[in-house]
Simulated assay, not measured.
Amino acid sequence: MIQIMSVNFDKNIPSWRTNLEAINYNVLVLVREGKVRYKINGKEIIAENGDVLFIPRSTRRSGENWLGAPHQKYTILFSYDAGIETGIPFLDQKQFIQFKTSQDQYAFHRCERLYEEIRGGKSFRNIICLGIFQELLGMLARELDKPDLTPSKLKYAQIIKNYLLEHYREPIDIDQLSKLIYRSPNYVTALFREVYGHPPIRYMHQLRMLEACNLLLSTDMTIAGIAQYLGYYDTSYFHRVFKKHIGMAPSNYLQQGAQSDMSKLF
């Protein structure tokens, strides 16, 4: 059985470092911003934004800021019975791995929820935290189980994704995205779905809904104001999109707040 020991969010710690030691726990690392340098069993590893690292128990590990610059990352320390298979291949193989997740926004959101939940004092906290963590592990395992994609496909998909991350509040259509990589609109839609599991326009709405949820909980903006800020000039359309992706109206989300399950976004 998997047991979570701690969940940490290292946010721009100026002199972050860990001493070289053989760890007696497992670590899942998700880098959110910047770069971090590890030494894993004597080998130097540089991890950056979007990278996931699984560092198994008994690994000799040290870590520090890359070139002295701070970074942001989530680290989840956990244990599990080494004699029983978990069904998660990278856990059962008990070997260090590093890969870049294409579902970084979803992974960061689940880590954030786990970080907040584990520090709360609400009932059934341990069960909820384990469920969130198992969902995260399953998503990462599913991603690793995908057939290998060609470097050119990954490059084109990343170009589109980066554009959406920077311009998601602006009007965007498939024709516009196709011009970024000089391919047809149908190719863009199929490519993005193959790499990230959903079409690019849906991803744009997902980004907008994540931001809408954040603005609802952390600002005094009105629902109409949030809709317009995110590019929905028809407030009734914003309500329909929000309910479709989040499963409830914006006003109901305000009442439930961080307790709402946003996994359906992805």
Score class of each variant (00 low, 15 high):
27 V>D: 08
148 D>I: 08
86 T>F: 00
117 E>I: 05
165 L>K: 10
79 S>D: 15
135 E>R: 15
234 D>T: 06
40 I>L: 06
232 Y>V: 04
215 L>F: 14
144 L>G: 14
57 R>L: 04
145 D>G: 13
172 I>Y: 01
236 S>R: 03
43 K>H: 15
244 K>E: 11
178 S>C: 01
42 G>H: 10
128 I>Y: 15
145 D>Q: 14
221 M>Y: 12
265 L>P: 02
116 E>M: 01
181 I>E: 04
119 R>K: 08
66 W>I: 08
168 Y>A: 01
79 S>Y: 02
14 P>T: 09
172 I>R: 01
238 F>R: 02
254 L>M: 14
43 K>E: 15
103 Q>P: 00
55 I>Y: 04
265 L>E: 00
106 Y>F: 11
240 R>H: 06
227 A>L: 08
45 I>G: 01
13 I>R: 12
231 G>F: 01
196 Y>V: 03
31 V>D: 06
85 E>S: 13
95 Q>R: 13
1 M>L: 09
263 S>Q: 06
153 K>M: 11
2 I>L: 14
54 F>W: 09
170 E>Y: 14
5 M>W: 10
143 E>R: 08
259 Q>R: 09
170 E>C: 13
6 S>C: 10
225 G>A: 01
266 F>Y: 13
72 Q>L: 06
97 I>G: 07
220 D>F: 14
208 R>D: 02
139 M>R: 15
159 I>C: 08
91 L>H: 05
84 I>K: 15
118 I>R: 02
126 N>E: 15
61 R>W: 15
159 I>M: 07
2 I>W: 11
108 F>C: 09
159 I>A: 08
24 N>C: 11
38 Y>C: 02
197 G>K: 06
163 Y>F: 15
73 K>G: 14
133 F>K: 00
71 H>I: 11
257 G>T: 00
250 P>C: 11
4 I>N: 03
117 E>P: 08
100 K>Q: 08
213 C>H: 03
114 L>P: 08
68 G>M: 02
203 Y>V: 06
124 F>T: 04
196 Y>P: 12
77 L>Y: 15
190 A>W: 01
119 R>M: 00
61 R>H: 15
41 N>F: 00
249 A>W: 01
48 E>W: 08
187 Y>M: 05
69 A>E: 14
77 L>T: 11
114 L>H: 00
171 P>Q: 05
57 R>S: 10
155 K>V: 04
92 D>P: 05
41 N>Q: 02
245 H>G: 13
143 E>A: 09
214 N>Y: 15
146 K>C: 10
159 I>Q: 09
72 Q>N: 13
127 I>N: 13
182 Y>L: 05
34 G>V: 07
13 I>A: 10
75 T>G: 13
204 M>P: 05
237 Y>W: 03
234 D>C: 06
206 Q>E: 11
68 G>A: 03
136 L>C: 00
255 Q>H: 09
137 L>G: 13
106 Y>D: 07
86 T>P: 00
213 C>P: 00
18 T>W: 12
213 C>F: 01
66 W>R: 07
47 A>E: 04
49 N>W: 06
